[in-house]
Write a protein that binds this DNA or RNA. Structure first.
Lengths: 233, 233
DNA sequence: GACTCACTAGAGTATATACTCTAATAATAG
DNA sequence: CTATTATTAGAGTATATACTCTAGTGAGTC
């Protein structure tokens, strides 16, 4: 594997683990057992590394949120979208943590992220639209759908932060799979009132699968692994 | 005014303006035209300053979210809660921005914040309960109410970050009053499906007041001032 | 007038951080 | 084989950061 790619991989790993703020370029180099000079041969600066990681993230999410226009959506599709988005969120979780600071320091990133957000909002809205066409949720006026989509986005992007700050009385805060999946539970909660009678029970059953067993008990559950076995389309 | 209080005030101001990460204790001292030594006479370290600011924030929100148990809630109460919470969010907006890092570095803060979050969630849930009692929203089972409350919390605490990152193509990102208030619009969007027929129109009209005029146009609107004229009870 | 004590100035320090520079070694092209 | 280019090591640097230490000052007290 190319040094350049190793740098990106290690950076992501360290950023996710310890937060971008506490991981220095020297740490990254040390972790790879290469010299700082070597790292700076491949990247102009730390921002550059972060930007490239963002591009990967963007690509991943754009890929997952590609909505088929030639067929109606199914419940499985919706499940796939939810699982995928939380997957992506997990893999690049450092990003949303220090988002504001990162955007303040890199105009390119700010601009790109802005567009990325808008694409995501459009995708969510389009998913709702197609779920309505498929008779899974009731159709809603554009304006309401847009506001709902934005709420879904806010819940999704804030879920990890909530887990890490509000849960986990112990400091380390190993996230469990159950906890991460509760994010899907929260998103489905938003949809409940809009479900059609025909699908209500099925979606409620789906939601139930993501419900936490014991809300307040920090269990010794398996740590998140993800990259689960869902395949696109 | 005591030097100690001036330090807290300036710190909050600078943190809000530039982010905790980029504001050093030396900056704070310089801004007050006092020596670093003086600052460190009053506070053991930077974390201590932040912790004290958090206590103020906590006190403010706890005060606002005190729910009267001797009378039913009104729509005006709900408006007051929403306005107040966004007020508080604005006044201490640096806090949520760097939340994870701050909690990682201070056990006290982590523990207190955790309890604070739970109190807020309980308050939101209690508000929903009393809104149902007042016939404003339909009553819901405990479990759904809890999940809804959590969604409200996620939307509220993530709203500022959304504005600062997704909006404002220009770098500075001066938030406008209209934009901040759109957070209330988003929260009310969550409530729509649960409104009783008797109140539906009134709440929709209230919501309309917070609706952004031109969603995507970064206008030259008046910058947020807040501390608006709402009085408790 | 000596004494205390809360408060302040300002120079200083150990460490870290992002990043640079030079020189050397592999890899590749002609 | 030679020349060029890509890659790497490793020491070094300018600056910043959180924080310390010493030496006071000024207002009140006995």
């Amino acid at each position: 594997m190319k040094t350049r790619d190793k740098i990106l991989l290690s950076s992501l790993e360290l950023f996710n683990e310890r937060g971008e703020r506490t991981v220095t370029t020297n740490h990254i180099a040390a972790h790879l057992a290469i010299s700082p000079g070597n790292l700076y041969y491949h990247f102009r600066n730390k921002s550059d590394i972060i930007y490239e990681i963002f591009l990967e993230y963007e690509k991943l999410v754009d890929y997952y949120l590609d909505i088929p226009e030639d067929r109606p959506l199914t419940l499985d599709d919706m499940t796939f979208y939810l699982e995928s988005v939380f997957d992506g969120l997990w893999s690049y979780r450092f990003f949303h943590r220090d988002l504001e600071y990162l955007l303040d320091g890199d105009r390119r990133l700010r601009q790109d992220y802005r567009e990325f957000t808008n694409r995501c909002l459009d995708a969510i809205s389009r998913i709702f639209e197609k779920l309505a066409e498929a008779g899974i949720i009731e159709p809603q006026p554009d304006e309401l759908r847009a506001a709902m989509s934005l709420n879904v986005w806010l819940v999704i992007t804030n879920w990890m932060a909530f887990l890490k700050t509000a849960h986990a009385s112990e400091e380390s805060a190993n996230l469990t799979l159950t906890e991460l999946k509760q994010g899907i539970y929260q998103v489905l909660t938003l949809e409940i009132p809009y479900l059609t009678p025909a699908y209500r029970e099925r979606v409620m059953a789906l939601r139930e699968k993501y419900r936490p067993k014991l809300p307040e008990t920090a269990g010794a559950e398996p740590v998140v692994g993800m990259k689960a076995g869902m395949v696109k389309n």
